[in-house]
Nucleic acid binder design. Structure first.
Lengths: 218, 218
DNA sequence: TAGATTGTTAATCGATTAACAATC
DNA sequence: TAGATTGTTAATCGATTAACAATC
């Protein structure tokens, strides 16, 4: 009944990734310490994270890679498929229409929207581009519950409101702006601008001290 | 001389974004409480974050939006431009070549690389696509210090090693894998797969309790 | 001056790490 | 059995929040 920290979920995904690689190598038992090393954290961290969800190992032995992998897959809900709508078929949006990453993770883009008349009606990678004016009806028609926002920042809130109104339950937002959504709507932001500014900061403030680099206050 | 938490930098970027919006609206004074509200955090958080870098406000009054904005811009190092190389001109990579976001944040993609013979020699948005075999010489030729990795996961470590060897100081990695780089190299990961799996987790475990939604342990 | 708001110190909270009993 | 490693509790660490003196 505990609330699970975001970072625990992120690490669970990483463990899952490491376990896949181990399975491919034919390794079928791994200790928390080894798994941690491959996931860039401690064995303690691995064990602690797993206790949020149950007991998956054997004392004195370790974890069975394929068992743990399938348990994590189920915990993350990666054993099902989700229908997704994409809003904004610009350069990033159209890249996503032909990006296999979504499909690989169980997210099928079934419809897309744009306001640009020259794009409407076209089909990219089997996905139709519809007029954003038809968003609500189309969302209902397809029974889509998840949306990807790849419109310019200034239109993102408006699109988000429209999606929420249409019954969307989760949003993956790529627009560089903080969206206001009702608490019941799940939102994840992938903010490239924030990453670029962090990169800029660390590049600017990198300082050499005794042949070692640290990020310091001025 | 304190180490600055990553989250502080992220929030500084958000403050900067909020301040820009305020300036456009012609608001030239703002209190920490108001700024916090717009940035989705508390006034205390805003004031605490700013103390890492100095004193920017006036007691009893608040902050001058344009002064604070220009201070943050300077702190984040957004007052200069960086030359960038992009490795992997697939669907995501080519989207980035014509993506204005990078330029807007001072990152100019000056050269790109791919292994696909059919792409080599082409020019997208004024950026030449070169053979990845020429990476080292080209990096030196352009004096590039930052690289974006948009190659498939299985080639990312190899590309990363090559970049480090060529003298790259910072990497923005979009491949869904954890790269090993020397400590002195700055690395930021934008991991779409991790976001999708988190979305999947929260969608799977969303539960209604008394008309309220919480993320709970099973 | 009185009211407002910053800058900063102290208290709280939550996440990470250490330690170790349980047990294969 | 002896050695290894998990699962879990307690200790530590660091970040967030509360409180308030300084001061406009």
């Amino acid at each position: 009944m505990r609330r699970i920290p975001d970072m625990v979920i992120t690490r669970m995904s990483i463990y899952s990734r490491v376990l896949s690689a181990l399975m491919e190598k034919g390794i079928d038992i791994i200790s928390s310490d080894e798994l941690g090393k491959l996931a860039n954290c401690s064995g303690t961290q691995v064990r602690k994270d797993l206790t949020y969800f149950g007991q998956f190992g054997t004392r004195g032995v370790g974890y069975n890679t394929s068992d743990l992998k399938s348990n994590i897959t189920k915990i993350l809900g990666m054993d099902k498929r989700w229908k997704v709508a994409l809003v904004g078929v610009g350069n990033l949006g159209s890249a996503f229409l032909s990006h296999e990453r979504f499909k690989k993770h169980g997210f099928d883009i079934v419809v897309s929207f744009d306001a640009d008349k020259s794009k409407i009606g076209k089909i990219y990678n089997n996905v139709e581009i519809r007029n954003i004016a038809e968003l609500k009806e189309s969302i209902n028609e397809f029974g889509v519950k998840i949306a990807i926002i790849t419109v310019p920042a200034q239109f993102a809130q408006e699109v988000s409101d429209l999606l929420v109104e249409s019954g969307i339950k989760a949003i993956l937002n790529f627009a560089p702006t903080t969206l206001r959504v009702p608490e019941k709507v799940i939102i994840r932001n992938v903010d490239l601008s924030l990453e670029l500014e962090a990169l800029s900061f660390f590049l600017t403030h990198k300082r050499a001290y005794d042949s070692e680099f640290s990020f310091l206050y001025l």
